[in-house]
Design a protein around this nucleic acid. Sequence first.
DNA 1: CTGTTAGCGCATTCAT
DNA 2: ATGAATGCGCTAACAG
Lengths: 335, 335
Amino acid sequence: MPTIKDVAKYANVSIATVSHVLNNKTGYFSEKTRQQVLDAVEKVGYTPNITARNLKASQTRLFGYAWHRIPRGMVNPVLDQFSYYFAQAAEAIGYHMLMFTYPPEDSLPVYDELIRTGRVDAFVVASTVADDERIRFLMDQEFPFVSFGRSNPEWDFPWVDTDGMRGVADAVQHLILRGHTRIAMIGWPETSISGNFRLQGYIQAMRAAGLPIHDSYILRGENFEYAGREAVRTWLSLPRDEQPTAVVAIDDLVAIGVMNEAAERGRRVGEDFAVIGFDDTPLGQYLRPSLTTLRQPIEAICATLVRMLEDAAHNRRIEPRHVLLPPELVVRGSG
Amino acid sequence: MPTIKDVAKYANVSIATVSHVLNNKTGYFSEKTRQQVLDAVEKVGYTPNITARNLKASQTRLFGYAWHRIPRGMVNPVLDQFSYYFAQAAEAIGYHMLMFTYPPEDSLPVYDELIRTGRVDAFVVASTVADDERIRFLMDQEFPFVSFGRSNPEWDFPWVDTDGMRGVADAVQHLILRGHTRIAMIGWPETSISGNFRLQGYIQAMRAAGLPIHDSYILRGENFEYAGREAVRTWLSLPRDEQPTAVVAIDDLVAIGVMNEAAERGRRVGEDFAVIGFDDTPLGQYLRPSLTTLRQPIEAICATLVRMLEDAAHNRRIEPRHVLLPPELVVRGSG
DNA sequence: CTGTTAGCGCATTCAT
DNA sequence: ATGAATGCGCTAACAG
């Protein structure tokens, strides 16, 4: 690969001049010189070496992102979209995405190593949880990062998140408009922050509509298909006139469990029993009936994250520091 | 961040000595010095800066991987697993994965830029097609890469691939063992290389078993759910005693189309009508019936790719140059 | 064994 | 307006 020296030699100028021209330091060269240099660049086929640039500038132009392994049988339909849009948004400002992994339950050494070796300029942290150790660590280290997802409210760090509360409230309103009054929700365990936001959306929308929330209408379970099935069993053991006719599930996978169990117990999903999921998993539209769901605004989230990360990487003030974006209700056959 | 100079100062030695110790250039230092240096490293909290190392070594320790956007409604359930295992395998040898994107139908400028700026040491190319322009370009440029998937047979480049022929043959044999004789397959268009391999596996297994292949038993379509539905319509328009009782679909998405259409037309999938897919898409196990499918050996593929890439990045001979790994038949309810 | 020095490729300061 | 020189942090050749 040709270097700046080759260009300088070819153009009969110094490397400083080449650098000036290429970095548009106007006032440091004449128009004639500029043309000479540009010609030379063209002729020798020069492109600045990014490693050298980065060393000089003490940066990497890399954002680190940890890809989480998801056990077979669980799914995170959002992360692959996220990767794509995040990488794309980063590229638009001259950054790239460095993807890494870490052993289960032992993320910190990996983050530490990446920081210490100067591998990346900033991190984006996704799939956050309560007391998230990665967030706490990065805050402690004062290393630039932005989170996709919230964590402890008392912690002050920049984040972008889907407004799950708003999304679920929209879903419930949609069900109400369709005539449902006995609407239930299955959420995640109480330790899940985003799960709790979504549940709040349910409660809020039900109250706003003056609809009663039967004791068993709020159920919780882990993120498995099985959790949806169990919830249905509970609901269908209620007296007939108390059984919910519509369910908002915390997640598409759980929604599928709800649909499966309901169908196997004789309910006609989408007709006398409505189900709404969350995430718009790729195959959802091919289920029978097709799955109504809340789609996260991944592209907008990524664009926002990258904007914030750029500021973070340069130790600039991040403004705004918190961004909440509403999901979109995709109405299909199940509800 | 502390540099090698800080360590040298603290240990009262030269930076060369520090470097020698850290890079284990035995014979270049005494045990006593070694301890001093190691202590100093510990005390000042030093980790070598990777950008400086890379500049010196003219490398990046980065493998580039292009993440493909998949239109809504299509799925590539393999790529997210691929990302994870690939990143992990790369990390095991001190590399990282740089993920990038490119505009539809215009990949070459992006590859070119990454090469010219020295952004990565090698590429892994996935989702290959016939006459793949990326492969042709990288061969032309003589830039290190390894492909996950084959392309034109007359091209000489290193690749790793799933043995789709073998996988489909296994699936057909499995169906035969279950008593099926009228077995059909739906493939991809003739331009698809991996699609053709899979179809060959079907033909081979049918012939080996002495089973007739009815004219309409081999159908082709694009990778949509719709293609599976259409195929079923064709088959069910045959005289009853010619209709296939089992189908191997080129892909889970197509298999889902087959299942959906068959079910809607009164077939009891998994009982009087068997369906086998390809890829083990995450939700396949939660379909009713759950989807029997061929699971690609992604983890082994990634390990192999990384081994080959390491050689490629150092311009070493890659041996072996082509690796074919068999998929695993995951038997579930649909067949 | 240890230290001095050059150089990876670039951007930038400071002379001229 | 132009160029020589310096340094980013590291490794390695070479001198002592």
